[in-house]
Design a protein around this nucleic acid. Structure first.
Length: 354
DNA sequence: AATAAACCCAACCGCTATCTG
DNA sequence: GCAGATAGCGGTTGGGTTTAT
């Protein structure tokens, strides 16, 4: 039996909010304050779901919101925070922490950042994960490689200039994503690969960083229940990720270096990574290669959590092989063997889909 | 001018956590 | 302890906008 809907949806208006509705909502909240979202639409005379009212208020009508034009600094912050908070470190709780990222960007909402990431930054991140961005001269493709539609340019004359600018921005974004991911790995490295026992920040950068962070947190005023940051710190599991954020935002964070041949030269891994360079393996491939399964369980646990499955074929092959060996030792043709094989395949499917 | 396609974003949806009686 | 209400969150989608053909 499902829970009753938050509001009676029959007869309620959906879709875009009109100016009149915004005014009614804003006026009502100004007079009565936030809260009681369930009864708010009825009391305010709005044919909207309370949830919808809340979302509209939080994302658009609330005071102090910036609209549009994400600055370079904000974009930089989003990329770095996404690389940290979006990492599978918090895989089991939530794949991304938009609200947490938004908390570091005063005046920005989680929805806005989420949209910005999905429309602007995710492709760059995907490009980086898939490998080095390849410049293709579309004009040399069959059919001239002409692109239909889209918001790429406003005219043939402006196109070139914009393309150049866009490329610069893309490069910046790609390098930022690369930097962020690299910094994340270095952060993991610094922590001995275990997030459960994060090393305390050094006084130099830790103190300054935490001050900045506190300032940002207080400026954003985004706490889930109105408690101060100190209060939350004790029990909030995300405090760990906040520490990682601090480490990430430290000015002296190491950069990803690209060798003259285009190969990756990670500051911690030394030589260029693999025969295929960074193109085919991406950031996580190195992690997989550096796994020391016997010596350091903590590192393995962490790296497994952060592992890009698609780039760790060797390790998974090994895992499958081990499973197969186990199966072979079972009584041949037995029902139990089949059952176990099913279980194993189920496990592998589950792991592969993590 | 009409059309197609990519882009963008506001809003919806479903789920979980927390609060409250 | 339980159930319903509420708040919060992230993923997804519908439709408007923009641009090329």
């Amino acid at each position: 039996m499902g829970r009753a809907p938050c509001c009676e949806k029959v007869g309620l208006k959906k879709g875009r909010w009109t100016k009149e509705e915004d005014e009614v909502l804003a006026r009502y909240i100004k007079e009565h304050g936030e809260g009681s979202w369930r009864s708010l639409p009825k009391n305010a005379g709005l044919l909207r779901c309370g949830k919808s009212c809340r979302l509209r208020w939080i994302n658009y009508l609330r005071a102090g919101l910036k609209r549009g034009n994400i600055s370079e600094e904000e974009e930089d912050m989003i990329i770095k925070l996404h690389a940290t908070l979006g990492n599978s470190f918090i895989l089991l709780s939530s794949p991304r922490r938009w609200s947490l990222i938004a908390g570091h960007l005063p005046g920005r909402t989680d929805n806005e950042i989420k949209n910005y990431w999905n429309s602007h930054l995710s492709r760059r991140a995907a490009d980086f994960r898939d490998g080095v961005v390849v410049d293709i001269d579309l004009s040399k493709l069959p059919g001239g490689g002409k692109r239909r539609g889209g918001r790429a340019s406003r005219g043939a004359v402006v196109a070139a200039a914009k393309e150049k600018k866009a490329k610069e921005k893309d490069d910046r974004g790609n390098s930022k994503v690369a930097e962020a991911e690299q910094q994340l790995r270095d952060t993991e490295d610094d922590d001995g690969g275990s997030v459960s026992t994060p090393r305390p920040q050094s006084d130099d950068c830790g103190t300054a960083q935490s001050e900045e962070e506190q300032a940002q947190a207080s400026a954003s005023g985004l706490t889930s229940d109105g408690h101060g940051p100190e209060e939350e710190e004790e029990e909030d599991p995300l405090a760990l990720s906040e520490e990682m954020v601090s480490a990430l935002l430290a000015p002296e964070s190491p950069k990803l270096e690209v060798g003259p041949d285009g190969s990756c030269m990670d500051s911690y891994s030394g030589p260029p990574s693999g025969e295929s360079g960074c193109g085919s393996s991406g950031p996580s491939g190195d992690v997989a290669q550096d796994l020391d399964l016997d010596d350091d369980k903590a590192i393995m646990d962490w790296d497994l959590m952060g592992l890009d499955i698609s780039t760790a074929g060797d390790m998974w092959d090994q895992l499958v092989w081990d499973y197969d060996e186990t199966l072979v030792t079972e009584p041949e043709g037995g029902e139990e063997g089949h059952q176990q094989q099913d279980d194993v395949m189920s496990d592998l499917f589950f792991l592969d889909n993590l």
